[in-house]
Amino acid sequence: MARTAAASPFARDPAAERKRLLGQRGEAIAARHLTGLGMEVIDRNWRCDAGEIDLVLRDGRVLVVCEVKTRTSTAYGAPLEAIDQRKLDRLRRLAARWLRVHDCHPDDVRIDMVGVLAPPGMPVEIEHVEGAG
């Protein structure tokens, strides 16, 4: 009997697939923006049982943990409005875990946020908040 691979949950849910692709696009846009500012991407989409870090970068001697939020409109608020204090607290815990797992000892750690507004057929807008948490 032939064995078949389990179908991806996105294959059954086109809306979830669109959201995933939008998130990937936003993270790529954010990474280009941040590297354009002189930062170096050292990790992407790092996951553990406690959550995910979108981007980990080096800004000189500072390690930057970056949360990226992407939206196609502001109908439900600007992208950065989706990052609340609870999310920032989680990012702090995730940053500490990332440092332990990678045995990394930077001079400083910073949490940044990048909001990407990508309306279809319109120019992309990027908002970067340095040192958000």
Rank of each mutant, 00 (worst) to 15 (best):
T35A: 05
L55A: 03
K87G: 01
D89T: 09
V101T: 14
I83N: 05
A31G: 01
R93K: 12
T70M: 05
T70F: 05
G77N: 09
D49G: 11
R93I: 07
R71P: 12
V56S: 01
G23C: 02
R47H: 11
G26S: 07
R93P: 03
C104E: 15
E27P: 01
D13M: 12
A78D: 07
W46H: 09
F10N: 11
R61M: 08
D59C: 04
G60H: 05
A75K: 15
R100T: 11
L55G: 05
V101R: 15
G51Y: 08
R93E: 13
L80R: 04
K19P: 13
A30S: 06
V101I: 15
R90F: 04
N45R: 10
L57N: 05
L88G: 00
P9Q: 12
E81L: 06
C48Q: 03
L88C: 01
Y76G: 06
E17K: 14
I42G: 02
R47S: 05
G51A: 05
I29N: 00
K69N: 04
R90L: 15
G51C: 02
E67V: 07
T35G: 03
R58E: 11
D43Q: 13
V41T: 10
R92A: 09
R18E: 15
R93V: 07
G77W: 00
G23I: 02
M39K: 10
W98I: 00
G60E: 08
V62P: 00
H33W: 11
D13Y: 14
E52N: 00
R47F: 06
D54G: 05
Q85I: 06
K87Q: 14
G36F: 04
A78Y: 12
S8G: 01
T72W: 10
A11I: 03
C66Q: 01
P9F: 07
L94R: 08
R58K: 14
G77K: 08
A75T: 15
V65F: 02
R44G: 04
G51T: 04
H102S: 07
T74R: 15
K87N: 03
R97I: 09
R32W: 02
A82Q: 14
T35P: 06
A11N: 12
L37H: 13
S73H: 12
L57V: 02
V101F: 08
R12K: 14
K19T: 14
C66N: 05
A31H: 01
D13W: 12
V65W: 00
K19N: 12
R25D: 07
M39R: 15
R25G: 04
L22P: 07
R90C: 04
I53G: 00
E52L: 02
T70K: 03
V41R: 08
Q85S: 09
L22C: 04
D13F: 11
T72C: 12
V65D: 00
E17M: 12
I29F: 00
R12Y: 12
P79D: 10
H33V: 01
A50M: 12
E52M: 01
A30C: 03
R12V: 09
L99E: 14
K87P: 02
Q85H: 11
W98K: 08
S73W: 09
R20Q: 15
E52T: 03
L80I: 04
D89M: 07
V101A: 13
R18C: 10
A15Y: 13
R44V: 06
T72Y: 03
M39D: 07
G26P: 14
R47G: 02
T35V: 11
